[in-house]
Design a protein around this nucleic acid. Sequence first.
DNA 1: AAGAGTTACAACCGCAGAGTA
DNA 2: TTACTCTGCGGTTGTAACTCT
Length: 314
Amino acid sequence: MRNPSSSGAPAGRPTPCCSKVGIKRGPWTPEEDELLAKYVKREGEGRWRTLPKKAGLVRCGKSCRLRWMNYLRPSVKHGRINPDEEDLILRLHRLLGNRWSLIAGRIPGRTDNEIKNYWNTHLSKKLISQGLDPRTHKPLNPNYNNPSTSQIQNPNPSLSEFGETSGSTIKQAKPTTSSEYIPATNHDDDENKVVNGATNEVNWHSFDGFVMGSQGHIQGYNNKEEEEDYLMGNYCFNYEDTRFSSLFMDSMMDENGFGNMVAPTSFDPTLHSSSQAFNVHDNGTIWGDQVLSTIGALVDHEGSNNILKDHYHP
DNA sequence: AAGAGTTACAACCGCAGAGTA
DNA sequence: TTACTCTGCGGTTGTAACTCT
């Protein structure tokens, strides 16, 4: 926390906006929070510069906005970041870098500030301890042999980076690149099988390569109808507890982000609303439209890789 | 028990882009 | 086109809380 009694900028630096005489700084009191929350609920967000005076606060607009966005907003989720969220942060960071607002926009209830803090205090150190550069997610030392990852058999390095072993033998989706992509319509193709090593249960990659899972478990069809829908090209994800699985992300990415991306062949968002397409718990994991927007972001981010767009809008 | 060291995170800063007159 | 304001972003700081010695 900053010292509430401190005021003004250090000598030699431009005067910050909050350094005006009489403008309060530092931690917010419950009374201030209440004033701000009441005002924003009544008048809505925006016009931050004039808000403090109207709300009866002795703060600068910037400070008010920050307090609202990062703490008071009803949609802000308080509490520890769970392992699923952590996994998603890692993967999104690998794709997007330090674009905290973009990352936060895809993790419900979490703010960019919170994610940035969590990254700086936890995840960057975690990657370093695994011998990975937290900026690039690549090995700091190419010769580094991380004992915790060296036994992972999965050919996709991103699986092992985050300790995701799950006890299953996972057959990698076809190593397809955007230029190589061939619509996979033959669902008898063993390449799309996922075999659970413990149970011998066989499931199929959804999206012809993506696996939608539940808390790291690999899921297949819930019933015969789903299987038939899938085979008919009408497949729709409607699991009760479908997560934005890390396997799903893995199957979209290689260490460069997109080289292993596989376009869907049987999923058409124009046929299924996103909420129908992905039915996800509200416990901090991803909703359907966010899955789709994430996919969109992945594609938009690179610009050069339009396989999903092309597939949806040929 | 106490001081030193470390961690977590709220809050501040400067900058850049968008919008507007 | 330019100048100005507003908003949002990412980097950084400072301190309360916690852990270690």
